[in-house]
């Protein structure tokens, strides 16, 4: 039981992490119609910037600021130099151009930091465990990730549905020509939205750093999982991204945690059971996606009805 609670919380934590990435992708796709594979690179940029500043200065506040700033600045530069020219193109061109960006960012990271992964210690203030319910302890840091994810989700909701810039974002997503005709600097708005999406990815990267290795290619693994989230949740819908992220996070974590023991009970050979369980749990969320597609091809909560 204790293990179940712990693993469920791990799943929720992974879910919030995926949500940050999926929300950024969805925001960018929703308003600009651009599919940005390099979102994973921004995730990596955030993680690396934070890791380097944390080890150099020892200050985690500075590290967080550096991570966010690096992701936002590189994201906006990316928008200004490349993405801006892709708005009118079809999705294939966008995928390929941002694929080229990934090659660049990954290799650049190798040049700057080498192939060895960087390890970041959990901030001392957040190190330790919290007593949740009878006999179950859970790492404080992971709880903080869940909290930050929740706050970000709330903040995004307020930003989009309650503020002036959110109004422009929604208007731009519905009819960009009309917004432009009304005198809004849509280019600036796009750059800001892209920066915001980049910051969300950077935030996810910063928080992932201490619980896993910071290494080249970390962005793409999580990016593909984010695509699964978006397809399950429904393309272009932030609510869908939220629901999809939690489902994917929990299903993925629970499968990895419990499937091996379950299969070992059912099968004679332990090693075969382990291999099978490893395979199924790695494929689990993709199977889930296939099932969702069979039932609801547009995802669980599609953007328009």
């Amino acid at each position: 039981m204790a293990l179940l609670i712990e693993q469920s919380l791990n799943g929720i934590q992974l879910g919030f992490m995926l949500f940050l990435l999926a929300a950024g992708l969805t925001l960018i796709f929703g308003i600009m119609g651009v599919i940005n594979l390099a979102q994973g690179s921004l995730f990596m940029v955030g993680a690396y910037a934070a890791a380097v500043v944390a080890t150099q200065t020892g200050s985690y506040v500075l590290a967080a600021i550096a991570g966010l700033a690096a992701a936002a600045i590189i994201g906006m530069a990316m928008e200004y130099l490349v993405i801006r020219r892709l708005y009118a193109r079809d999705h294939l061109d966008q995928v390929l151009a941002t694929f080229g960006l990934i090659l660049f960012f990954n290799q650049m990271t190798v040049i700057l930091f080498g192939r060895q992964p960087l390890f970041v210690r959990i901030p001392p203030l957040l190190d330790g465990s919290v007593h949740i319910v009878a006999g179950v302890y859970y790492p404080l840091y992971r709880l903080v990730i869940i909290g930050v994810g929740l706050l970000t989700a709330l903040g995004l909701y307020i930003l989009i549905s309650r503020t002036r810039i959110g109004m422009l974002i929604r208007a731009g997503a519905t009819n960009r020509e009309m917004v432009r005709a009304l005198g809004v600097d849509i280019r600036l708005l796009y750059t800001i939205v892209f920066g915001l999406g980049a910051m969300l990815a950077g935030l996810a990267g910063i928080m992932t750093g201490p619980i896993s290795a910071v290494q080249v290619g970390m962005g793409e693994q999580v990016l593909i999982l984010t695509f699964v989230v978006i397809v399950i949740g429904g393309v272009g819908s932030i609510r869908g991204a939220f629901v999809g992220a939690l489902i994917v996070g929990i299903v993925d974590t629970l499968l990895r945690a419990f499937l091996p023991t379950l299969l070992r009970h059912m099968m004679a050979s332990g090693s075969e059971a382990d291999a099978l369980a490893g395979g199924i749990s790695a494929m689990g969320v993709y199977l889930l996606m296939a099932i969702v597609l069979l039932v609801r091809p547009k995802g669980l909560l599609p953007a328009n009805g």
Partner: peptide, 15 residues
């Protein structure tokens, strides 16, 4: 580190 060059080349080709 050829990918550092290939990546931007591909981006330019697409753009």
């Amino acid at each position: 580190n050829w990918q550092v060059i290939l990546g931007p080349l591909l981006v330019l080709a697409i753009l």
